[in-house]
Design a protein around this nucleic acid. Structure first.
Lengths: 133, 133
DNA sequence: CCTTGACTTAAAGTATGCTCTAAGTTATAT
DNA sequence: ATATAACTTAGAGCATACTTTAAGTCAAGG
């Protein structure tokens, strides 16, 4: 028998909120989750795995819209594997470009940090000189 | 005489829109920009430099709220240099941590890419075999 | 002179991604 | 039995960061 998890448990282990999980389901990022007789959601291991993958996509800056595309491809099964591969490779490429740009921008912030450090060091040299008066 | 630029020119060189520039001014990221007799904005070189710096902060993920804090510190002049330095160093630290996490998440996407590649390569091995029937 | 285009403002609207509310149902512990 | 906690839904609300609109001003060319 497949282990099943409550929404609370899934929220806890994934870090997503108890609001976000039904939200993701509603907008089609998750297939309809199985229910207990009570009507309460029972997430399976496969659901957890897919949610974790969604988190990786999200954390690498993918939009909900694109994640939805990705979910649709997954629904296409094996037939869409090639398409999914291309999709993920393109995403990967965009993220890497973004990381390179991020490093460039950060280098500019670093330059400002350096300027401030120099400016403050200059003060430290002047202050003792003032003591000579 | 200091060279001055129209909003259109500044929008062009910075990549910000003609909407965003007055917006940044309104919310206090930019000091009030000098005006021509007509009332039209005339940006100076110092404005351009500051705008470019804002762009670096933004591009490294700083929120408008934090950029506003930074603008306030700048208004404090030399007295706030030490504070500004700390502020930027903290930002730098956060960005670097975020970049490390981003790499981790991307590695997980890569794993999925790899799985798909393997899966598809498996198909390619099977197909020629089918030709033997 | 008058049209065209660039500019001004305050305020409303948009896109994204959640997050919360309200009203009701179900499960659990005493 | 009953209080409490966890869950359900549709739909409203919120935070962020712009973006657009509307109504009006100003400057330059024909």
């Amino acid at each position: 028998m497949e282990k099943e998890f409550t929404i609370q448990e899934v929220a806890h282990v994934t870090g997503l909120s108890g609001y976000t999980l039904p939200y993701y389901e509603r907008i089609g990022l998750l297939d309809p989750i199985d229910r207990a007789n009570s009507g309460h959601r029972r997430y399976g291991a496969a659901d957890l795995e897919w949610i974790q993958f969604l988190i990786y996509l999200r954390a690498t800056g993918m939009s909900i819209r694109q994640m939805h595309q990705c979910a649709e491809l997954k629904r296409g099964g094996d037939a869409t594997r090639r398409e999914r591969l291309v999709f993920l490779e393109e995403h990967r490429e965009r993220v890497q470009e973004q990381m390179i740009k991020l490093e460039e921008y950060l280098a500019n912030v670093d330059k400002k940090i350096h300027d401030l450090q120099v400016s403050l060091a200059g003060d430290d040299l002047l202050k003792p000189a003032e003591n000579l008066l």
